[in-house]
Simulated assay, not measured.
Amino acid sequence: MTGHVLITGASGGLGRAIAREFADHGAELITSVDITGPDALIADLVQPDEPARVVREAWSRAPVDVLVNCAGIYPSVDMLDVSAQQWDRIFALNVRAPVLTTQALANLAIEAGRPASVVNISSGAALRSRPGGGPYASSKAALEMATRAAALELGEHSIRVNAVSPGFVAVRSDCNPVTPEYTTVMSRNPLGRPGTPADIARAVRWVAGPEASWMTGEVVRIDGGSNAGAAHLPRLWPSATGAAR
């Protein structure tokens, strides 16, 4: 993967892993948002004008070939208690910012007559919420539909828009620290372990790259098989022959 890759939210464990994955496989230039370093852009993507600004600034360094929208917040707040301000902030960063960065990149790429690839980072929460996760789950469900809508409209301009949906990945979070008990429960998937940032980063690079050139509007779920079903639930019958009795 050569070219210019723009990654938002690169200060987090997942964003850092994605940047490292692209760098290790030949990306010529990586511009990251919210991480220190010589190529970093500092921005508050909750502010309406900031998503487009960082895309334009990144493009001024070199045309952007790949945009990875990884920035996001996932506070634990019940639907009974969430305030209008909390709800709006979650949706501003998790949905509006990726939409606006995609829009800005698309306009620049179309004007320049260049293809581009966008990968949004979704979550298994888009399909299945948890106590305290309703606002976050709602934002990720909205992001997946925004991914499809953008793919539908931008395909004729050779701009692909996809999403990668991680299952449970053990990374540090100041806004929603994970307990050991939660880690144990969330590791009960068919492959029997939590994911790693590297697992997700490899999928992001593949989806963004030429190997997936005929893919757009898709959500690729990297979750250890969690979406296949609930492997930790007991059997309905005490034995394989119980159903025949």
Rank of each mutant, 00 (worst) to 15 (best):
G134V: 07
S76K: 15
G195F: 12
A17R: 14
P63K: 14
E57Y: 05
R20L: 06
P166R: 08
G37T: 02
M145Q: 14
V66W: 10
L45P: 10
Y136H: 05
P180E: 08
R245E: 09
A104E: 08
T216E: 07
A198W: 03
L93N: 08
L152W: 02
A243C: 02
L233G: 02
L93Y: 13
V68E: 12
D223Y: 13
S76Y: 06
G224S: 13
E211W: 01
G37M: 01
R160W: 03
E21Q: 14
A170Q: 12
D49H: 03
W59M: 13
L80V: 08
N189G: 04
A125F: 09
D65Y: 07
D174N: 03
Y74N: 12
A228V: 12
S239E: 03
P115N: 10
E50Q: 11
G134A: 12
G133H: 04
L154M: 02
M1E: 06
L100F: 14
P115C: 07
T101R: 08
G132Q: 05
S60R: 15
S11L: 03
L93M: 10
N176D: 09
G113I: 07
F22M: 09
A84F: 02
I7Q: 09
E156L: 04
A149H: 08
E144F: 03
I7H: 09
G124Q: 13
V82F: 09
N69T: 10
A116P: 04
P166M: 12
A52L: 01
S122N: 07
A228Q: 13
P197F: 08
R89D: 11
V55D: 10
T184F: 02
L127M: 08
A58V: 11
H232N: 08
A150K: 00
D65A: 10
N189Q: 11
R53A: 11
A150Y: 03
E28R: 10
K140N: 03
A141Y: 06
E111A: 15
E211C: 00
A97F: 03
S165G: 04
S60F: 08
N94A: 03
V161F: 07
Q103T: 07
E50D: 06
A198T: 15
D174P: 04
A106W: 09
L100D: 12
Q86A: 08
D88M: 01
P48S: 04
A244H: 10
G167E: 10
G26H: 02
V119R: 09
I90K: 01
L67F: 07
P131K: 02
D88I: 01
E156G: 14
D24I: 00
A243H: 13
G13T: 10
P131E: 01
A208F: 12
H4T: 15
S117Y: 04
A230I: 14
A228N: 14
V66I: 15
S32C: 13
S173F: 03
A146N: 01
A58F: 09
P48A: 12
